[in-house]
Simulated assay, not measured.
Amino acid sequence: MIEILSLILKDGDPTWIRSVPNWKRAPWCETIMGAFSHQDQPSPRLLSSHLPIQLFPKAAFNSKAKVIYLGRNPRDVVVSFYHYSKIAGQLKDPGTPDQFLQNFLKGEVQFGSWFHHIKGWIRMKGKENFLFTTYEELQQDLQGSVQRICEFLGRPLDEEALGSVVAHSTFGAMKANSMSNYTLLPHSLLDHRQGAFLRKGISGDWKNHFTVAQSEAFDRVYREQMRGMPAFPWDETPEDASPDPELEPEPAPSPDQASEDPSP
């Protein structure tokens, strides 16, 4: 999403995304560096955040700022978050996959409960300055998603600019861009010797990791926590959503396995 917005802001010109790291293009407001650097950005400026709504700066809700919330299948979030935790220097070791899954379901992970997070932000849905979309929708129809974002921002693009945004914000393009793949960060923050930040960039990979027991445990908590919520793209039929029954419990990933961004 940072890449998409960076490109839209420059009418599809990739010069900015190829010359400035994404954390400088869209500073994270929950970091000290981000909190102080965003004021130096020219308007309109981009901000990023993983904060739950109750911790997000209240001034934003009384401004003309527009918010785009990117959701993702929480099962894939678990897998992605686990791999990320293996290389992120600021996070404790995630332990075994099963231990991490239990911590995730209890909300005992960075930024708290995924369930509380999405339920808090989705209350904004329907407001003219709030757009909810998902990682799955970006994958299924990137061009349509970019067009929708442009309409929301009031920044229409011609066909050539739109094509450039789509081409430069694909997973492959970002993985090859040192300004977007986080390889410029020091090993103390993100140890790329243990794996890449951008790992697979697919949906549904959780089925290759969850055991049947883990899937059933997750589904019980998901049904309880998300009761009364609207359907999401990842709310599949039970048959489609099941992992391979022959799958053995997954061992902890080896150090050379990679990671990817854990979008809430």
Rank of each mutant, 00 (worst) to 15 (best):
M1D: 09
M1C: 14
M1E: 09
I2G: 06
I2S: 13
L5Q: 01
I8N: 01
L9D: 07
G12S: 10
P14F: 02
I17W: 00
R18E: 15
S19M: 10
S19I: 10
S19G: 13
W23Y: 14
R25L: 04
A26Q: 01
I32R: 14
M33V: 15
G34R: 02
F36A: 15
H38D: 08
D40Q: 14
D40C: 12
L47T: 03
S48M: 08
S49G: 08
H50Q: 09
Q54D: 15
Q54I: 13
P57T: 08
A59N: 12
A60H: 10
A60R: 07
N62A: 14
S63V: 05
A65Y: 02
K66P: 04
V67P: 04
V67Q: 05
I68G: 02
P74K: 03
R75W: 06
D76Q: 09
V78H: 01
V78I: 14
V79N: 00
V79H: 00
L91K: 10
K92Y: 12
G95H: 05
L101Y: 00
L101I: 08
Q102H: 12
N103P: 05
K106C: 09
G107V: 05
E108R: 14
Q110C: 12
W121G: 04
M124T: 04
E128R: 14
F130S: 00
L131Y: 06
T133A: 01
T134L: 05
T134N: 05
Y135T: 02
Q139N: 15
D141Y: 07
D141M: 09
D141S: 11
Q147M: 13
R148T: 10
F152W: 03
P156M: 09
E160L: 07
E160S: 13
L162W: 08
G163N: 11
G163H: 04
V166K: 00
A167I: 09
H168W: 11
T170S: 08
T170F: 03
G172N: 11
A173Q: 06
A173F: 02
K175Q: 11
N177D: 07
M179S: 05
S180R: 00
N181E: 08
Y182A: 11
T183M: 09
L185P: 00
P186K: 07
H187E: 14
L190E: 02
D191R: 02
R193A: 15
Q194C: 15
Q194T: 13
A196I: 06
L198T: 01
K200A: 04
S203G: 11
S203I: 12
W206V: 01
W206R: 02
W206M: 03
W206I: 02
W206T: 00
N208C: 08
T211C: 10
Q214C: 01
S215R: 12
S215A: 15
S215T: 09
E216Y: 05
F218R: 06
F218N: 06
R220L: 14
V221M: 04
Y222V: 06
Y222W: 10
R223D: 11
E224I: 03
E224Q: 13
A231C: 13
F232T: 07
F232P: 00
P233N: 06
T237S: 14
P238H: 04
E239A: 10
E239R: 07
P243C: 10
P245Y: 01
L247V: 08
E250S: 15
E250I: 13
P251Q: 06
P253T: 08
P253K: 04
P253V: 04
S254H: 12
S254I: 12
S254N: 11
P255N: 10
P255C: 08
A258H: 14
E260V: 06
D261E: 13
P262N: 05
P262G: 02
P264Q: 11
